[in-house]
Design a protein around this nucleic acid. Structure first.
Lengths: 348, 348
DNA sequence: TTGTACGCGTTATCAA
DNA sequence: TTGATAACGCGTACAA
């Protein structure tokens, strides 16, 4: 087991100084052709590679970006990571991941861990708990130390940093308008409580679409789920709530759901009640997931372009890292990624 | 924008030496209570944290592990990552990810990038291209430099290292036995070509189950798909092949598919042909995906316990990193993770 | 009780 | 053309 070779070892072997080796390897004009060839040949033979950690220390730059997300077993987030990784790699950066698992304290701990020199900047999406507690000190502290942050998807206006968000409002609005165009008269909304910004915006998009078409929103048609509960585990709970919604409002002929699982459950309940999708009820979801494509009938969805979000976030962050903007003059941008409506079988 | 504070700055402010500060912060007996309190108070005020990079360089240990996978937008792999992250974090390690995107060269580049000091060891699953080319020099070189590797799922016996694998053989065998118990007389297999080890093993499990029950395997019932093709994109191609299979063999009353997509497509084709699942045809897939749970009918699957695999791999790797085993005496283990058959609606 | 010197691996600057 | 030195930030053996 041979350890990785260092400049020092090469220098010793060839009986020259460390700095000569360093210069020779970087093809410096200062060094004679003779020594350069000798050194380079030796280095190649022993497969010399500069030690990243030493470079990071010297340059005060790690060429690594940290990404902190609430959950990785989730299509949206893994697609974002793919986008980040793609861009990061092509621009010479590595990606290090931290999972908050939707917990405030894990988010804080993870950030502190990485902020101590391991990375050059963060890309992150806040945990639900952080959103609820509205405690953003760890973000502000990190930034005040000169570590740039780009937030995506789950965002709050209180924090001054670059952001990449989905156009939740218009995505929802377009979806509901599609239902209206398709002659739905009574459109239900299945959403979450409002503290997650994206949920709120999607709800507003729903309301706006109705109002623009002179349809009066009915509170009864809006089902707000408690999203602290893991419905993957408590599916029956979700389904019974939706069934309740359908039973109390038999006129429902359209459903807009703010995520994939809600939409799928709506279809399942509808089928169970003898309703045909899309003939009796049309359904649209909001997601980038796989379920939509492979469900029966396949689900019309609002695509969020998660990978594109990741790519954009990575570019924003690296730009910020590499541009020594003149202090005070800093300004932040919020990039809005437009959604697409992907029409499948659950709408006409 | 205040940069992160260092020992040197604290020393200067308090007019003591760097090592005094260092010792005071580590609560050394050498330092007087007085100075210790002074230093600690100051450090706390300025939120001092040791610089990870400097520690890594000094200790020649990064407390970071690298994970290289072919693809992250994939339930199996993201669950493995979650497992790795969980264990790594609890044992004081960070996780840095690299995606090979199923490409040999990207795998090599990524590994070289991380092997130059950024991490203490690798957890990885080989790309398809690497499996095909059977070029493993980058793994062996990495290990010969004293960097431990743990491989999972996609594995070859040529490489001497710790491994965590799914019990593909018995998983498949049990699944097929289940179909036999359920009175299937003519069981089809939808699999991939043999160069991916897991595909081969699952095929062997299928054959073994048949033989043990005195059923003669029929070549006609085995459909080998070309898995270099991305069937998420070319779904019709996949479905038409399966349709062909059904049409040529009307007696088929059971299907075992080596992944989720194949199984789902089989159900879809069956339905299209007027066959009822599970009454006319029973279907079992092999996967940890989400589609199975939410499909209609929901799919009986062989669960791979991906997260558990990640956890085990992380433990193996960290154990190896932290144990200065006595050279030559090194020995490697292969941990086999047992599968579970999760029975859902696609079987009786 | 405190401080000095060294080394981790690298590069940049300056001296020889 | 080459080499010595300092610096990045830290911890520790040893000297004061």
């Amino acid at each position: 087991m041979k350890r990785k070779i260092t400049l020092k070892q090469i220098a010793k072997e060839l009986d020259v100084s460390i700095s000569t080796v360093s210069k020779a390897l970087r093809n410096s004009e200062e060094i004679s052709l003779d020594t350069k060839q000798k050194v380079q040949a030796f280095a190649k033979l022993y497969n010399y590679r500069p030690n990243n950690i030493a470079l990071s220390l010297k340059n005060r730059k790690t060429n690594t970006i940290g990404i902190i997300i609430p959950e990785i077993v989730h299509h949206f987030f893994s697609k974002v990571i793919r986008g980040v990784e793609l861009v990061a790699n092509s621009r010479g950066y590595n990606v290090i991941i931290g999972l908050s698992n939707e917990s405030f304290s894990k988010e804080v701990i993870n950030m502190e861990m990485l902020a101590n020199g391991s990375i050059d900047g963060f890309i992150l999406s806040m945990s639900k708990e952080t959103l609820q507690q509205q405690d953003y000190h760890h973000f502000n502290e990190t930034m005040s130390q000169g570590m740039p942050i780009v937030m995506f998807d789950r965002v709050v206006s209180d924090i001054k940093c670059d952001k990449v968000i989905v156009d939740d409002f218009n995505g929802a609005k377009n979806a509901v308008e599609k239902l209206i165009e398709n002659n739905c008269k009574s459109i239900a909304l299945i959403t979450t409580r409002d503290y997650v910004s994206v949920g709120k915006l999607r709800t507003q998009g729903y309301l706006e679409a109705l109002q623009e078409h002179k349809i009066t929103p009915e509170a009864e048609l809006i089902l707000k789920m408690d999203d602290t509960m893991d419905y993957e585990v408590h599916l029956e709970k979700l389904e019974s709530e939706i069934e309740q919604l359908f039973k109390s409002n038999e006129k429902i002929d359209g459903v807009f759901a703010v995520n994939e699982l809600y939409a799928l459950s709506a279809m399942k309940v509808a089928r169970k009640m003898g309703l045909n999708v899309p003939d009796d009820v049309q359904v649209i979801g909001f997601t980038d997931g796989v379920l939509s494509k492979h469900s029966t009938p396949s689900l019309t969805t609002v695509s969020q372009h998660a990978q594109q979000m990741g790519e954009k976030a990575a570019h924003l962050l690296i730009d910020k890292i590499e541009n020594d903007f003149n202090e005070e003059e800093e300004q932040f941008q919020t990039v809005v990624i437009a959604t697409d409506l992907i029409e499948r079988e659950s709408t006409k």
